[in-house]
Design a protein around this nucleic acid. Sequence first.
RNA 1: GUGAGUGUAGCCCAGCGGUUAAGGCGCCAGGUUGUGGCCCUGGAGAUCGAGGGUUCAAAUCCCUCCACUCACCCCA
Length: 418
Amino acid sequence: MYQAARGTSDILPEEQPYWHYVEQKAADICRLYGYQRIDTPIFEDTSLFSRSAGEYSDIVQKEMYTFEDRGGNSLTLKPEGTPPVCRAYIQHGLSNRPQPVKLYYITPIFRYDRPQAGRYRQHYQFGCEAIGEADAALDAEVIEMSWQFFKSLGLTRFSLQINSIGCKQCRPGYLVELTEYYAGYRAELCKDCKTRLEKNPLRLLDCKQAGCQRLADAAPRNLDYLCFECKEHFSNLQKYLEILSIPFEVNHRLVRGLDYYTRTVFEFQPEEEGSQSTLGGGGRYDYLIEELGGKPTPGIGLAIGIERTILNLKKENVRVPILPGLKVLMTNVGEETRDESMKIAAMLRREGISATSTAGGKNLKAQLRQANSLGVRYAIIIGENEVKTGTVTVRDMADSSQKTVPVSDLVSFIKKEA
RNA sequence: GUGAGUGUAGCCCAGCGGUUAAGGCGCCAGGUUGUGGCCCUGGAGAUCGAGGGUUCAAAUCCCUCCACUCACCCCA
């Protein structure tokens, strides 16, 4: 039997209310903060991703779904949302619009990773990018927006961590300090951290191994090595967050796994203990546009995992609105009444009232049972009597009351009752 | 990529070497000649995750593979 490919899943009708709810709230919050929707292709030139995420990032090293098309081009299924939006910003000359340009998306993301609860090979992200402005006020707004998004969904048990990882001016100096510090403890590092020391020393800080954690706690802090501008940027960010009453925690070990981040990085974490500790996160990327071939342009973005958000909605027992279902089911007694029943169903639909007629030659009892399990408000019964008199029997499934209504009055009757 | 656990009808699950694999939910039908939800009765639905092996005999023991879950890694 065929089954969905590993790490992918079907979203059945019962789950859809959650998805609709989250997507709706995302659209609402974006409207509130002036973000406009953008959709980019599901695959891009492989180099767009390998250039931006960083040669030694896990995404590029082992998680990309890369394939060659018939023309011999190397393409990759979107492993993250930011680079395609930056590409679109450059390609369409969005730098000519009022800055910052604020865009959002809801997109599938593909990463070849070992599946786990809350972790999939195809998952969905709600992401925002604000491009063309370096002011920390914008960082604060983006973070506040994420905060309000989770709040508006009804989530209460999550927290926010922020950090600054500096810029081109100050990071190299810090990395030298960090590397020198760790070089002294080389022997005590775990296997992964030994490679991190060579390839990507910043990542040493968020290793979870107990021994490495001790070293990380005592390691030189990025925040102590920030240049004047970065320091000011970070203190402004904190000031703004306080003005906006967003509670946060500074975590000097928060670094994030993508090389293009500069200055601000942030992460939202659910309070609940679990293996998946990130609900969403993001950061500033002031060199990315330039690296991808555009003119120097600062930007900041965020990405929120929709599956993880839904997981937490369930954990917190948030009730989501049910989606409107079918309003009317046409039932008929006797074969000759089918034509009339089809006609009336069509009439109702043209008036914007959802209606279908039962299929097959079932008896009335079975048809009503179907009406019951579909949860329709009305079952409309048509038998020979009704056809003869040009009427219809309208049964209100909620209270079992029935009324005989002339076909000519049916639409207004149902609209009035609703 | 590494380690551990699990895998029985659409769903939840009993059985853990021996005649036709049990139960609940759901589904379908009957109990009403034109009437749902409750109740009663009946029915359909399972090559016991897949393949191979051990045995007179395997859902039950062994091996391989696949999937899911958990931990690591990493992230959303």
